[in-house]
Computed example of a mutant assay.
Amino acid sequence: MIGVRGPGRLHGAAVEARDIRAVTALLIAALAADGPSTIRGMFHLRRGYDHLLPNLATLGAEITTTPGGP
C-alpha cells in the first residue's frame, strides 16, 4: 500500500500533452484540480483509451471536447 499527499491543491490550467501517458496523467490531474483545465493533445487518447472520456462522464466528470489534432 502507498499513501501520497501533495503539498497543496491543484488549480486548473492550460496544458499540452505529447504522448498517451502524458495526456492520461494530465486528464487525471485536471479532474482533481479546482477550476477548469484545457488539455491540448487529447487525440493521443484514440491510441488506446478512446472509451475513457465516456466512462469518466458516466461517473460525473464534466468533459467537453472540440475537434482537432492530427
Rank of each mutant, 00 (worst) to 15 (best):
A57H: 00
A30V: 07
I20R: 06
G68I: 06
P70N: 09
A13S: 08
L31R: 08
F43G: 04
G60I: 09
R47W: 08
F43E: 13
A61I: 00
G68E: 05
R21T: 13
P36Q: 09
D34M: 05
P7D: 13
A29C: 13
I20M: 09
I39E: 02
T66E: 15
P67N: 06
T64K: 08
M42F: 14
R5D: 10
D19C: 05
A57L: 03
I39V: 10
L52R: 02
S37A: 08
A33E: 06
G12P: 00
G48D: 10
R18Y: 08
A32I: 05
I63K: 00
V15W: 05
R18V: 06
L56G: 03
H44R: 14
V4Y: 14
L45F: 01
A30I: 02
R47C: 12
M1R: 10
M42L: 10
T65S: 15
L59Q: 15
R40F: 09
F43Y: 07
A22M: 11
L59W: 11
T24I: 11
A29Q: 12
E16K: 13
G68M: 01
G35R: 06
R47P: 02
A22Q: 15
E62P: 03
R21N: 12
I2Q: 12
Y49D: 14
I20T: 00
G6I: 13
A22S: 15
I2T: 14
D34F: 01
V15S: 02
G41C: 06
I28P: 02
I28T: 13
A29V: 02
L10T: 01
N55R: 14
V4H: 08
R9V: 07
H11E: 12
G12D: 04
P67S: 07
I28W: 09
G68Y: 02
G48H: 02
G12A: 06
M42A: 14
L56Q: 01
D19I: 00
G8L: 10
Y49I: 02
R21Y: 14
G35P: 01
G35M: 01
G3L: 15
T38N: 02
L45N: 06
L45S: 10
L31M: 07
M1Q: 11
L10C: 01
A13T: 06
R47F: 12
V15F: 04
G69E: 02
A22F: 01
T58S: 04
M1K: 13
D50W: 05
T65Y: 07
P67H: 09
G6E: 11
P36C: 03
A22D: 15
A14I: 10
P67A: 13
L10N: 03
N55S: 11
A13L: 08
L56T: 00
H51Y: 15
G69C: 00
A61Y: 01
P70T: 02
T58D: 14
G12S: 00
T66A: 13
M1W: 10
R46V: 11
A13D: 04
R40P: 01
H11A: 08
V15Y: 03
T64H: 11
G69P: 00
H51A: 12
P7Q: 12
G6A: 11
A32C: 13
L26Y: 12
A14T: 12
V23P: 05
P67W: 02
R46S: 14
G8D: 13
V4C: 12
G68R: 05
F43Q: 11
T24E: 15
G12M: 00
L52Q: 04
L26D: 02
N55G: 06
A33I: 09
Y49L: 15
N55W: 04
G69L: 00
G41A: 07
R40D: 14
L52W: 08
